[in-house]
Amino acid sequence: MSEIDTLPLVRYEDLPMARDRGAGWAKLRELGPVLYGDGWYYFTRREDVLAALRDPQVFSSRTSYDEMISPVPLVPLGFDPPEHTRYRRILHQYFSPQTMGALLPTLQRQAIEIIDDISDRSESEAIADLAVPYPSQVFLTLFGLPLEDRDRLVAWKDAIIAVSLATDLDSVDLTPAAELFGYLTEAVAEQRRSPRGGVLSDLLHRDEPLTDAEATGLSLVFVLAGLDTVTATIGMALLELARNAELQARLRENPALIASFVEEIVRLEPAAPILGRVTTRPVTVAGVDLPAGSQVRLPLGAINRDGSDAQSTDHLVLDGKLHQHWGFGGGPHRCLGAHLARMELKIVVSEWLSRVPNFALADAHVPEITWPSATCALPSLPLRWENEMP
């Protein structure tokens, strides 16, 4: 009998996640410290997940991306140190709190424009109206691209993610992937010729410039990995507020708590709840021997709610403090755009609460995430309110 045969089996798609992530992650943890299913090993203990995140030499992030999705390397996700370290050193200054702070007025103005339009009504499908378009505008602004390209960008991104999840690859349409790649390739070439304001031009014209392929790969990473994650978290933040009128009032009265609220949403509902790794050599975890080449899944959502301390609960902890969590990952691959994501979320929550009166879920709507999925995202979030501030 092989080691796999002795492990508890898990079917990821069978976890009860759609309505209650707390129940779903608890079910996963209850099965044991190391699980197996569909070719993957799952770690469920915090210490094992964190050890794997911090050891890229054994648990590698290097990925052979399917060329139908990306014919260029996806910078920096698909690299381990030392290549990953080089990219992070180059990119850090562009995504630091100081650099993001300089963008605050512009990104705040864009959010206000979208939310002002919404607030004139008495209802909103908040995912389509706000959570999808706003992160796309942020990307275009950050990379010095025209805001009028927003709807095309969203359509391409959605189509490519659908392709990546398809099981019948013979029937998929690769046109959107080719169009997005062509758009980003041309943007890189154009900004190589004629620099513009923004991260992309700076990376192409610095003392240690990125190559065209590296710059295109980075841009693609932000479209495919950076937009849906913020969209998902905006949806979860507005859902939590819609369910709790007292919380809305508390944050309106004390906006300083919004930063803590955002951190708690990221802890409870990490948009990318599972991180994948591949073992580079045999390794033993929780008494289980994994061979080299093992596919590993690290559930951030499970360890953030594991009850190992007073803050790791299934409920919001709003005590005015910022508590440690792993909603943005950990180790050298911790999310490069974490500061940007935090800023987007704080802007959206602040401006929504200051412009939209007490709001709630539309009658009879039962919020469920799409499951299984790469992101824990609500497909829709219909909200309603009386169009008059109390």
Results as ranks from 00 to 15, higher is better:
V223K: 02
L247S: 09
I265P: 00
A259P: 03
Q248F: 11
A225I: 13
E214P: 06
A237E: 06
A272Y: 04
R277C: 04
A272K: 10
L220G: 08
A225N: 15
L239S: 05
E208F: 05
L268G: 02
L257F: 11
A272W: 04
D212F: 12
F261P: 00
A213E: 09
A259N: 12
E246L: 10
A215M: 07
I265S: 00
A242M: 08
P273R: 00
L275H: 10
V221P: 02
V221I: 13
T216I: 10
R250A: 13
T231H: 07
A232G: 09
V223H: 04
A271P: 06
R243S: 13
A242E: 04
I234K: 01
N244M: 09
L247P: 04
A213W: 00
L218R: 03
H205Y: 05
E246C: 09
E264W: 06
P255W: 00
R250N: 08
E263L: 08
E208R: 12
E269M: 10
D207W: 10
E263F: 06
R206C: 14
L227V: 12
E246F: 08
A256F: 11
A225R: 10
H205V: 08
A245Q: 15
A249H: 11
E208K: 11
V223M: 06
A232S: 13
L241K: 01
R243F: 08
S260I: 06
A213F: 00
P273H: 02
I274L: 15
V262P: 01
E246P: 06
G226T: 09
H205S: 06
L275K: 01
Q248M: 10
L227E: 10
E263R: 07
R267Q: 06
H205M: 12
P273Q: 02
T216R: 11
R206Y: 09
G217C: 04
I274G: 00
I274N: 09
A225P: 09
L247R: 06
A213S: 15
I258C: 05
F261E: 01
G235H: 01
